[in-house]
Amino acid sequence: MTDRPLTLMAVHAHPDDEATGTGGILAQYAAQGIRTVLVTCTDGGCGDGPEGVKPGDPGHDPAAVTAMRREELRASCDVLKISDLEMLDYADSGMMGWPTNDAPGAFWQTPVEEGAARLAALMRHYRPDVVVTYDENGFYGHPDHIQAHRITMAALDMIALETAAPETAAQGTAAPETTAPASKVYWTTAPRSMMQRFGEVMREFGEDMPEPDPAETAAMAEIGLPDDEITTWVDTTAFSGQKFDALAAHASQGENIFFLKMGRERFGELMGMETFVRVRDTTGAPVPENDLFAGLR
């Protein structure tokens, strides 16, 4: 037996991603005494600069943006009471199709095996019971989200291989006895019914927003999953204030964080439920479930 605390590891692409989709669970499980580990894969250098200057525009300094966003991320972690922050510091790749996708050092250009090896080392250190990341499309097709998914699943496979056959561990050495694969692995998602509500609320609060064209509407309709395919519904409404404040900590990106415009009360109503699809499990806990740690306590 071990007195090691239960541990959640969330693997995200950029500073601010931790708050949007998992701020509720990070705050809630931290309050329950669970160790919460956040891995942020990129430096966020393709975010907005001071006064909203955009990447590629005159005056946008990726190094300065990176430094600013690092401090904002730490502030967000403080709000969410995250136990441990690990930053892989790959260069932000920008949105799909941007020239920064191909820049040297961009996360999108990093060999999956390299990123997975670094992440697997963190998994050996923290020994997470539950791991959360994105689906294979990075939820909405962002290259860094897709890459975060790829390295996470590859790292989990590395750990599983080492545990099953220690003699095949990296560099010919046996894996530490305490290393074990995560008991449960989840991908973030959203119910399609909620995505429809998001669209309605965005138009309500964005008075100058044009009506979406049919192609955009069709693309939005493909994000997330049908409600009956979601395995895990975690009600984090009681922690929605912390989630809102964590998002607000990323003040430099406020123009891009639509959810802040709706105010704390409406935010809690719309963003209090966090949803996931369980993709790996050793506990046999029945689904649908309302706790990522069901079967572990």
Rank of each mutant, 00 (worst) to 15 (best):
F276K: 00
A246P: 07
D291T: 01
I257W: 05
V287N: 06
F267E: 08
A248F: 09
R264G: 00
K243F: 06
K261A: 13
F259P: 04
R264K: 15
F293L: 08
E269N: 14
L247R: 02
K261H: 07
L247Y: 00
R266T: 07
I230E: 04
A251D: 09
R278C: 15
G272V: 03
V287H: 11
K261M: 08
M271F: 15
D235N: 14
K261E: 07
D245T: 00
G263P: 04
F293R: 11
T231Y: 06
I230H: 03
D235M: 00
T283I: 09
F258I: 01
L270T: 12
T282K: 07
G241V: 14
G268T: 02
R278P: 08
E255K: 15
G241N: 06
A246Q: 11
E289I: 05
V279Q: 09
M262Y: 02
V279H: 10
L270P: 00
P286F: 03
F276V: 00
A294K: 02
D235K: 01
S240N: 10
N290E: 13
R280Y: 10
D281A: 08
L270Q: 03
M262I: 15
F259S: 15
P286Y: 04
N290Y: 03
N256K: 13
H250L: 01
A248D: 14
M262L: 12
R280Q: 14
E289K: 05
W233N: 05
K243S: 04
F276A: 00
A285W: 02
V279M: 11
V279R: 12
N290L: 00
R266I: 00
T275K: 11
A251K: 14
R264L: 11
G241F: 06
G268C: 09
S240V: 05
M271N: 04
E255W: 10
I230F: 05
L247K: 08
D235R: 02
V279P: 08
F267Q: 07
T282E: 13
V277H: 15
E269I: 03
G284M: 03
T283Q: 12
F293C: 08
Q242M: 13
G284W: 10
E269W: 09
F293Y: 08
A246L: 10
G295S: 09
L260A: 10
R280D: 08
F244A: 00
V279K: 10
T283Y: 12
P286G: 01
T275N: 10
I257P: 04
P286N: 06
G268Y: 05
R278L: 15
V287E: 14
E269T: 13
D245I: 03
P288H: 00
T237C: 12
T275W: 07
D281L: 05
G241E: 14
I257R: 03
E255H: 13
F244Q: 01
R264D: 01
G254R: 12
P286S: 11
L270D: 02
G272L: 10
V277Q: 10
G295D: 04
V287C: 12
N290G: 15
D281H: 05
R278N: 04
E265A: 13
A248H: 04
G295V: 04
T275F: 02
G268K: 06
P288K: 01
E269A: 12
L292A: 09
G295E: 07
F267G: 08
E265K: 14
V279T: 15
I257L: 15
T231Q: 10
W233M: 13
F267W: 13
L260H: 08
I230W: 04
